[in-house]
Simulated scan of single mutants.
Amino acid sequence: MWSNEPRSLPDWIEDAYQILVSGTPDQQTELSHDQAQDLLLTHEDFPDEPADTEYAIERLVNSGWLYEVDGKLRITDPER
């Protein structure tokens, strides 16, 4: 069920979303899980633990900030 309330995640996970947005040319770009993890792991402002990247991606998918189709990740609009 959709809600009009803004979606809220911990700051470091929202930062992960911003890193993924800035690392892709547009919201239609598909990323594999490995590509998304590499973007996060190589960014200076993100923890360099693979488990943190996996957790952040999982939370972003579960919260609707990212969506997955055929094993590829796509970016959604967090304002919706």
Rank of each mutant, 00 (worst) to 15 (best):
K72V: 11
L39H: 08
L60A: 05
G23K: 07
I75A: 00
A51W: 11
L41R: 07
L66N: 00
L60H: 02
D15R: 14
L39V: 04
E58H: 09
G71W: 13
Y17F: 12
A36F: 01
G64P: 01
D15I: 04
N62E: 03
K72R: 15
A36T: 02
E49D: 15
Q18S: 13
V21H: 03
R74D: 06
H33V: 04
Q37S: 14
L40T: 03
Q28G: 15
T53G: 06
D11F: 04
P10D: 12
I13F: 05
P50C: 12
R74F: 13
G23A: 11
T42N: 14
L20A: 07
L60W: 00
P50N: 06
K72L: 14
D48I: 08
Q27V: 11
G23L: 07
R59K: 09
D26A: 15
S32T: 11
D15W: 06
D45L: 03
L60I: 05
P25E: 12
A51R: 15
F46L: 01
D52I: 09
I19D: 02
D15L: 11
R59F: 00
P47L: 10
T42S: 14
A16S: 14
L60G: 00
Q28Y: 13
D11K: 07
I13E: 13
Y17I: 05
A56R: 02
D70A: 14
E44W: 10
Q18M: 09
L39Q: 08
Y17M: 07
V21Q: 08
W12A: 09
T29G: 01
F46S: 07
Q37G: 10
L73Y: 05
E54Q: 15
D38S: 13
D52N: 14
T53I: 07
S8K: 07
L60S: 03
I19K: 03
E14R: 02
G71E: 13
L40H: 04
L41N: 06
P50T: 08
Q18E: 15
E68Y: 01
S8W: 00
W65G: 00
Y55L: 14
D26F: 12
A36Q: 03
A16W: 05
L31R: 01
L66A: 03
T76H: 04
D11W: 05
H33G: 02
P50Q: 12
I75C: 02
E49A: 14
P47V: 09
I75V: 15
I75P: 04
